[in-house]
């Protein structure tokens, strides 16, 4: 019997179909989605805050932001998760959180609130460090003339940010943000190490006592594929919607450089200003 045959003999296809919609698995899918959405959302908020901290006039604020980014990008996410989880008891957080037992009252089984919160915290903090760069690239790609125009119309910095700069930066931010969420959906599987029954955690919990881990990992993979595929559709719909808001053929791919050439660059091109002198 060759290895492939022996693999196929022991691999139980029925265990896959049988567990595809097992209670724990479906619940795990829901936990994975909730955890990913919340972490991504918090990550965007933290990323925005970090962006503005890095532009603060008060230097220590910039240091804090840079140190934060340096730390969270420079250490393994798995370590960060374990660190947060293991630090929680010392902060007297673990016990009250576990006692709160939010998920049981929502109808879940075996989801510990402290594990969930530890995961959420670690993913959010980590994602914020990456979103800071994405937010920065997005905002900095907007012509400074936009903020100046807003200011000459009597807008404050924040109003100009909110109404003029951020909506334009959003278009630049959206594609990389979508990719971040795609990896977030998969990266959250790391929480299984702190005994949370997310999709992977549930698959392991069902699989290992039955010695059917491979089959249950297959189940998990099928679900992860479904989630990421669905997200791809949502993402392209979102991107289309955002560029369609300038109801312009191919607005997302507009040759912005035509409109955002800095004054100084423009002036440097020979003949532009000079030509007008003669008229």
């Amino acid at each position: 019997m060759n290895p492939i045959q022996s693999f196929l003999r022991s691999y139980d296809g029925a265990a896959v179909t049988h567990n595809l919609f097992a209670h724990l698995i479906v619940q795990g899918v829901i936990i994975t989605v909730i955890l990913s959405v919340l972490s991504q959302f918090a990550g965007v908020v933290i990323g925005l805050v970090l962006y503005f901290m890095r532009r603060a006039r008060f230097q220590p604020i910039r240091w804090v932001a840079n140190a934060y980014i340096w730390f969270f990008r420079g250490t393994p996410l798995l370590v960060q998760i374990l660190f947060v989880y293991l630090a929680m008891p010392y902060l007297s957080l673990a016990r009250p959180l576990r006692a709160a037992d939010v998920f049981t009252s929502l109808g879940f089984t075996g989801i510990y609130t402290d594990s969930f919160v530890a995961g959420l915290l670690a993913f959010s903090l980590n994602e914020g460090a990456y979103m800071a760069e994405i937010v920065r690239a997005g905002i900095d790609s907007i012509d400074p003339g936009q903020m100046e125009a807003a200011k000459t119309l009597g807008m404050t910095y924040w109003l100009g940010m909110r109404r003029i700069v951020l909506p334009q930066a959003m278009r630049v931010i959206l594609p990389p943000l979508g990719n971040e969420f795609n990896s977030m959906l998969k990266t959250t599987s790391l929480v299984s190490v702190i005994s949370l029954y997310d999709l992977l955690g549930a698959a392991e919990a069902i699989g290992s006592p039955q010695f059917r881990t491979l089959e249950l990992l297959t189940v998990a993979c099928l679900w992860y594929l479904l989630l990421t595929t669905l997200w791809t559709f949502v993402q392209s719909a979102l991107e289309r919607r955002f560029s369609a808001s300038s109801r312009d053929p191919g607005a997302g791919k507009v040759n912005w450089s035509r409109f955002v050439l800095p004054d100084r660059l423009f002036r440097a091109s020979p003949g532009v200003g000079v030509g007008n002198l003669t008229r």
Partner: peptide, 24 residues
């Protein structure tokens, strides 16, 4: 204050060489 500067600017119109319309 920023607010007061903004208030005064709101009464001073400015037109730029590069237009600076809001493209969105």
């Amino acid at each position: 204050s920023e607010k007061n500067i903004a208030r005064m600017r709101s009464e001073i119109g400015m037109v730029f060489q590069r237009f600076n319309l809001f493209p969105h």
